[in-house]
Simulated scan of single mutants.
Amino acid sequence: MPRDYLWMYPTLLMAVVFLVLSVCLHYWVPPGRRLFSAAGVCLTVMAAGALVVDYAVQLTVLQAGLRTGETEDLSVLSQYNPHGMFIGLENVGYATLNLAFVFLGIALATRGSKLARATAWVFVAGGALTLLLLVVFAGIYGTGLDYRFEVMSLLVTWLVLITVGVLLSVTFARAGLTHDAHLTREKVSHGDTAD
């Protein structure tokens, strides 16, 4: 049974790390685009809150209750209940996180580099796709949504985060190299070559 919960640890970490990244992106975008990035940060806070509570309940309440045989009234909390609180909170968390992706992507759309614009496109496309899936699945399945949206939203969200992570790493590394080269040229032009 503990193996069924192992995947929640990196997912908890992802929620917190992405929250920090969204704040960093807010300060990185041009001032005229910060309304969009601020909306993205606010939505990320709500999404991270829902996901952290959801996974923390699974790890600290449900898992402990199952191990000690205290199972009364736990079924509504279980990740195995397709109509339970776990799936509901995940659906809310991932829908909100993907809406944050859209706002962050819009905020990044005006950054100068091709990589930053590609990052913006991945954010907007991934976020919009996930939200579209929610609307389509809810329309088709109604109250029988079960695990369908949860599984697809997890898939798209992780693909977006992996892709964006790579793109932003390269973008920031190049920006750092450019900044270091600029500082070196500035030192040389002022005759200050000592570090």
Rank of each mutant, 00 (worst) to 15 (best):
L108C: 13
W28C: 05
P31D: 14
S78N: 09
I106P: 01
L35E: 11
N81K: 10
L66N: 02
Y141C: 00
L62P: 00
E72N: 11
V135M: 14
L104A: 02
Q79C: 01
G84Y: 09
T60V: 09
F103G: 02
P82W: 04
F137K: 02
G65R: 07
F103H: 05
K114G: 13
L133Y: 00
T143C: 03
V135D: 09
V61A: 13
T68A: 10
S75D: 11
L77W: 14
G65P: 01
L108N: 05
T110V: 06
S113G: 11
F123D: 04
A138M: 07
T96N: 05
G139E: 06
S78K: 06
G142R: 15
Q79L: 10
L155K: 06
N98E: 14
G49A: 10
G88F: 10
N91E: 12
D73E: 12
A38P: 02
V41A: 07
S75W: 13
T96D: 05
L62A: 09
F86T: 03
Q79G: 15
R111W: 03
L21P: 01
Y94F: 15
F103A: 13
L134C: 03
F149Q: 02
L74H: 08
F149C: 10
G139H: 06
F123L: 06
T130M: 02
M152S: 15
A118G: 05
A109L: 12
V151N: 05
V20D: 03
T130V: 15
L89P: 03
G65E: 08
L62K: 09
L51H: 11
L97W: 05
G40Q: 08
L145E: 01
P30M: 07
C42Q: 07
A128I: 05
P31Y: 08
M46A: 15
K114Q: 09
P30E: 14
A64D: 13
V41C: 04
V57S: 10
W28Q: 10
Y55F: 15
L25V: 15
L145G: 03
L62W: 09
V135A: 14
L59E: 13
T110C: 01
Y94V: 00
L134V: 00
L89N: 09
L115K: 11
P31F: 09
G88H: 11
R111F: 03
N81P: 06
Y27F: 15
R117E: 10
P82H: 07
V52P: 06
F101A: 10
T143A: 13
V151M: 09
A95I: 00
V57W: 05
V20A: 12
I87L: 08
V136C: 04
P82E: 05
G32C: 02
R33A: 15
A50Y: 11
Y147L: 00
T60C: 11
L99S: 04
